[in-house]
Design a protein around this nucleic acid. Structure first.
Length: 222
DNA sequence: GCCCGGATAGCCT
DNA sequence: GGCTATCCGGGCA
């Protein structure tokens, strides 16, 4: 018999710790997307995350310091840093550590627990429930997360658009780690991606693929 | 199942 | 102007 997940909100102090402690501890927690409509929220159990360790981390958006785009990462913990990437997609991070440390955890994948119908409406190409949030941009899309939610406090209670509940943290022996996805150079060396062993919603690993420059393409010969 | 390339726009140098 | 913390569809096995 499985105990029901704990629906107590995670307190801000949960996030005010070193990012490499917080990241694996987020697995099994519940992200609630409150839409404040009669349908109720969309809920997701986190199964895969990645740590980004502040201005010293070459893989981080905080590398080379604070800009308008990454300002939320430099703020207090327990807030959502949502950014737009590849001209099409949104991804969501949770800011960790004391204000100014500019570290965060990218939410890479999860299992939709409720609100499946609306999640499929947001992600019509998903062929089954497992694919709804298998990948960071898919996760954001399925939950209706975009730049409007950048800076949202996830420790501010159920009237906020997003909240994190205690859930059922994954036991340490079920947590695996490996290199981060899509991060090249020195940033690729650390095993700062964490996932729940064997979970079908974990996104497939993809090594960093450098883009071929358009000048390398065949030309008219001029 | 896999490998590959195109899409698309904001951000930063 | 080059790059990006990505996804999707098509081709092939």
């Amino acid at each position: 018999m499985i105990a029901a997940p704990d629906r107590t909100p995670l307190p801000r102090r949960f996030f005010d710790r070193p990012v490499l402690e917080v990241a694996p501890d987020l697995l099994g927690r519940i992200l609630v997307r409150h839409t404040h409509t009669p349908d109720g929220p969309i809920e997701l159990r986190l199964t895969e995350v990645e740590a980004y360790a502040g201005p010293a981390d070459p893989g981080s958006h905080a590398y080379r310091g604070r800009t308008e785009r990454n300002a939320v990462m430099f703020g207090p913990p327990g807030h959502a840093y949502v950014y737009f990437t590849y001209g099409m997609w949104h991804c969501m991070n949770l800011v960790c550590g004391p204000a100014g440390s500019a570290s965060g955890v990218l939410l890479r994948a999860g299992e939709i627990l409720s609100g499946h119908e609306r999640a499929h409406k947001h992600r019509p190409t998903a062929r089954n429930d497992r694919e709804l949030a298998k990948g960071p941009a898919r996760l954001a899309t399925a939950l209706g997360i975009d730049r409007h939610l950048n800076g949202v406090d996830v420790c501010a209670g159920p009237r906020s658009p997003m909240e994190i509940l205690t859930g059922a943290p994954a036991p340490a022996d079920q947590v695996l780690s490996g290199p981060r996805t899509g991060v090249g150079g020195e940033g690729a060396t650390h095993p700062w991606r964490f996932w729940i062993d064997g979970d079908p919603t974990v996104s497939p690993y993809r090594a960093h693929t450098p883009r071929r420059r358009s000048s390398d393409a065949p030309s008219d010969g001029t």
